[in-house]
Computed example of a mutant assay.
Amino acid sequence: MTTVSAAPRQRAVWALPAAWLLLAVVAVVSLGMGSVSISPGHILSMVGSSADDPLATIVWDVRLPRVALAIVVGACTAVSGALLQTVMGNPLADPGLTGVTSGAASLVLVILLAAPSYHSMIPIAAFGGGTIAAVLVYSLAWRRDGIKPVNIILAGVAVNALAGAFIAFLSLRYSDRLPAAISWMNGSLAAKGMDAVWMMLPYAIVGLFAAMLCIRSANVMRLGDDVARNLGEGVNRTRIVLSVVAVFLAAIAVSAVGVIGFVGLVVPHIARMIVGSNHAVLIPMSTAMGALLILISDTVGRTAFAPVEIPAGIIMAAIGAPYFLFLMRRQAAL
Rank of each mutant, 00 (worst) to 15 (best):
M46R: 01
R173K: 13
T98R: 01
L249Y: 06
V266G: 00
I215T: 14
A70T: 07
V245P: 02
G34Q: 13
A126F: 15
Q85L: 02
D298P: 02
L107F: 13
I124D: 01
I122G: 12
L223W: 11
G264V: 06
L113S: 11
V25G: 05
H119E: 13
W60V: 09
S5A: 15
V72L: 12
A165N: 11
A7L: 13
G74D: 06
T3Q: 14
G234T: 02
L213W: 13
S106Y: 15
V29M: 14
L154N: 09
T101I: 14
P40I: 10
L83Q: 09
L231S: 07
P268E: 06
A271E: 07
S35F: 07
G34H: 13
Y138F: 14
G81C: 05
R330L: 05
N160H: 05
V241G: 01
I319D: 03
A332W: 03
W60G: 01
V26S: 02
C76I: 12
C76D: 14
I122Y: 14
A141P: 11
W14I: 15
Y174I: 07
A333E: 12
I122V: 15
P284K: 07
L282F: 00
M273I: 05
R237P: 01
G146Y: 07
R11T: 08
A27F: 11
V235M: 09
R143P: 09
L325Q: 06
M273G: 15
G89I: 08
V275W: 06
I182R: 03
H269T: 01
P268Y: 06
A93R: 04
I314M: 07
V220W: 02
G320S: 04
A211K: 03
K148F: 09
R330K: 14
G193I: 11
T2G: 03
V110K: 02
A68E: 01
S117L: 11
W198C: 01
A15I: 11
V110D: 03
T238Q: 13
S106P: 11
A51G: 00
G187R: 09
M199Q: 14
S297Y: 02
A280T: 10
S277W: 06
A115H: 13
G258E: 10
T303H: 04
A24D: 03
L55K: 07
V267H: 03
I205W: 12
V4R: 14
A312Q: 04
A12N: 01
P268H: 05
V100C: 03
L295Q: 02
A18H: 08
R216N: 12
N230Q: 12
L154Y: 09
M273V: 02
G103H: 14
F262G: 06
L97N: 04
V73A: 06
I71Y: 04
V62L: 15
L113C: 11
L242I: 12
G164Y: 04
P307Y: 07
T299F: 01
Y118G: 00
A250I: 06
V275E: 06
L282R: 00
C76G: 11
A246F: 04
R272Y: 08
I182A: 01
A312K: 03
V247W: 04
L140R: 09
A141V: 10
V137I: 07
V244A: 13
Y174V: 07
L292R: 07
G129C: 13
L292A: 05
A218M: 13
I274M: 09
P95T: 05
D176M: 08
A27L: 10
V197Y: 10
V241M: 13
A161W: 10
M199L: 14
V206Y: 04
D195Q: 08
M289L: 15
R177P: 08
L107E: 04
G128V: 13
K192F: 00
A105N: 05
